[in-house]
């Protein structure tokens, strides 16, 4: 075999071998177990932290409110829709009495008009069929600016929850 071919083959063989070795060394351990990816990545995705606890966790301690809510228009609403994520509260609030509860474990209390307006502000896109019965067929819509802004007798500004019980609107 001519000299230059021999040298080239040696050089190429060296690089190809190096590549194959590197490939073996660098290929992640669970790669290819389930498909062309690292199978461990599924578990890593699963290991993320939870923030929303779900309504079942709320009703364990707040049975009374849960019962209140069960007969109103908001029966199907998860508590966290209005009160925000509650996983931390569920996990750690049990360690404290109501008075001692640190701010970081308190959930959001929606009291302003804008909180209700998120769902109930009138909007042409929002006229929706929700339930089968005619009575409850639409989500109640008001204009948050003009819907009884003040108490007519005392002239005090009114919030939605001054007249409506949010758990039983």
């Amino acid at each position: 075999m001519p000299q230059q071919i021999k040298r080239l083959i040696v050089a190429f063989a060296f690089f190809i071998l190096l590549f194959l070795v590197l490939r073996q060394v660098l290929k992640p351990s669970s790669f290819g177990d389930l498909g062309h990816y690292r199978a461990d990545a599924i578990q890593e995705n699963i290991d993320s932290e939870l923030h929303y606890a779900g309504i079942d966790n709320c009703s364990k301690c707040h049975e009374d409110i849960h019962m209140d809510k069960a007969i109103g228009f908001h029966a199907n609403l998860n508590c966290e829709v209005c009160h925000g994520p509650g996983m931390k509260h569920v996990l750690y609030a049990g360690n404290f009495t109501d008075r001692q509860l640190p701010d970081s474990l308190l959930l959001y209390k929606p009291v302003g008009r804008s909180d209700c307006a998120v769902c109930h502000q009138v909007n042409a896109a929002r006229i929706k069929i929700l339930f089968d019965t005619i009575d409850n067929s639409m989500i109640r819509q008001i204009d948050a600016m003009t819907h009884n802004p003040v108490n007519k007798r005392t002239n005090e500004k009114l919030n939605c929850i001054d007249c409506h019980n949010p758990h039983q609107p």
Partner: peptide
């Protein structure tokens, strides 16, 4: 989006499904 696979794994719904007020 992971379809909240970390919630599915614990038998819960994905967050956006959990929170939707009108199902």
């Amino acid at each position: 989006c992971t379809l909240c696979i970390h919630r599915l794994d614990k038998g819960m719904q994905p967050a956006c499904f959990e929170i939707c007020p009108t199902e």
